[in-house]
Design a protein around this nucleic acid. Structure first.
Lengths: 337, 337
DNA sequence: TTGAAAGCGCTAACAC
DNA sequence: GTGTTAGCGCTTTCAA
């Protein structure tokens, strides 16, 4: 049961050459059934496991895929991770995990580390992808797919959902429910393309319904519960009481709801709240959160499939995959009509 | 910037032998400053990264630690994972992640996979650890630490918190708040040692306060939100209306709260609810969950430190580390006195 | 202080 | 079909 058994030991014990053993474990070349059986028996007996290090060294295939995440205890990330993990396993790849805490330097370090460890591909989940890092990875020639809110404007492989349309639809839905004064709380700190897209979805829906844009209703926080709470609180403190709030992240949306409740208002009676992502907690919270469903598990799965295809030099029909979203009506939005 | 640069290339370009290059990158043996500098320059120039595969092959050190988890999108697991990840990075180890979905066979497969990948150690998070797997890992001679609710009764390295005492304390706390009819909803499917411990903590607190044990108040569900919901619903459907419910997992506790609300009762006014773990959502939910805080991040960190020590053959003072817990009073438990 | 050479465990020509 | 052999990129004796 020890780890020291090598291909040599097996060969000797089976009375064959190491190449024969290699052939049976990879079944790369024909081997007589009888010999094959003998080798197989010895392998079973000894509990021999081929050393992938040695194998990788010669084949140049590490069977490792690097996954870099901005945060480990975020449900958005987790649900994607589940999809990634499952597909990886399916294709016999292992995952090398790197957590960056959304830190720029840490991200670069992680990429380097993964590169050093000879990962064959990278799946990158990031709130905000750095152009420099994209270039760096491209230069290394490592196949990569990005799941990022901000990746779509680069010429790289991405999987995402259509943010602009989703935001547009949700805003329209809110308007359709009779809300006019709709706060829009975004979840990234910077003016990223994503936020531009989302913002324009929001604005379009509003203008189409002849609602004047009120910039004081727009906030830019972050993905966390705390940030959502803060943003909403600021609004309320400024005596801005919207009909509804559209927060582009579920955890932040729940933070907003709590801020509303703490200020003495009720959700959804006084203020409706809608989220984005449809993360696990959206169903658990009460009132249950009306939100935009994104197929997070699938996003992970698709991203992983993409890098595996890239590794195998298969042709990908598209560089940018957009997965469908849909509005999930639950309890946090009331009908004012 | 390509990955193909090897030690040979560096040696040639610097006009030295590969052993010299090896010496400077490991600074294992004295090298003249001048030569050293020359080599260093070439390394920088070429962007050379030593191939850890080749290195591991000879040193027998993979700098890899396997982490097996029962579930990826569970906050309990995640928060532990954060601690693990951080310490690993600190000691220059990488994490090979294996998700088992609490599946026995999958767990065995994962262990084998990690073994095959030459991990130097394993941190195992598992709802229920299998004796067979423990033995297997021990036989392989791979250092391992367990974070498991059920691991403490084996002679292995574990990190945990004192469940019996924590359960005792929380039950006592509940009694102290004037609750008598206290439902006890456990979160593992089997009669594990953990559940026995917890149960006896619950029973002791009750009997010390002269409250008769009512077995109909005891349920055994699972860790998930859904299981918590179900267990509570069963109670209510059977017309058993407790003063309080002590659910030994936060997500399940929130499930229980929702079941209570859906049945038309109020938390905490009609029924108080207490949880266990103090996971992120405990603060996010309303009413905020009164629960038992466990230092999850630290548990992960300590577990990782333990395996690293074991790898380095350092002496560990204790095989079983118990980290402190504490009761966190929030809003889901009312004072009936 | 430095270099030559052996070898880690494996795969993949190349012979037979 | 099967064995022999040359590496993969690196560390580590052993000489010089």
């Amino acid at each position: 049961m020890r780890n020291n058994i090598t291909i040599k030991d097996v060969a000797k014990q089976a009375g064959v050459s190491i190449s024969t053993v290699s052939r049976v474990i990879n079944d790369s070349k024909p081997v007589t059934d009888e010999v094959k059986q003998r080798v197989l028996d010895v392998i079973k007996e000894t509990g021999y496991i081929p050393n992938p290090l040695a194998r990788s060294l010669v084949t140049k295939k590490s069977k490792l895929i690097g996954v870099v995440v901005p945060e480990l205890s975020d449900s958005f990330v987790n649900e994607i991770l589940n999809g990634i993990e499952e597909i990886a396993k399916m294709y016999d790849y292992d995952i090398l995990l790197a957590n960056t805490y959304s830190n720029r330097e840490q991200e670069l370090k992680s990429i380097n580390l993964l590169r050093a460890k000879q990962v064959e591909g990278i799946v990158m989940i990031s709130w905000k992808v750095e152009e420099e890092h994209i270039n760096y990875i491209q230069n290394c020639g490592i196949p990569a797919t990005y799941i990022s809110k901000t990746a779509r404007n680069y010429d790289i492989h991405t999987v995402s959902t259509s943010n602009k349309e989703a935001t547009y639809d949700m805003t329209k839905y809110l308007v359709g429910k009779g809300h006019e004064k709709i706060a829009f709380i975004m979840t990234s700190e910077d003016d990223t393309v994503l936020e531009m897209e989302r913002l324009s979805g929001y604005e379009d829906a509003l203008s189409e319904n002849n609602i004047k844009l009120d910039k004081t209703l727009i906030k830019n926080g972050g993905t966390t519960y705390e940030k959502g709470y803060e943003s909403m609180k600021e609004l309320l403190d400024d005596n801005i009481i919207p009909d509804a709030a559209f927060v582009t992240g579920d955890e932040a949306a729940i933070g907003a709801i709590n801020a509303i409740c703490d200020a003495g208002y009720k959700v959804p009676e006084d203020i409706s709240v809608a989220g984005f992502n449809d993360v696990k907690i959206a169903k658990m919270y009460r009132p249950k959160l009306t939100t935009v469903y994104q197929p997070l598990y699938d996003m992970g799965a698709v991203a992983m499939r993409m890098v595996i295809k890239m590794i195998n030099k298969e042709i990908l029909e598209e560089k940018k995959i957009e997965l469908p979203y849909r509005i999930v009506e639950r309890e946090s939005v009331i009908d004012r009509i």
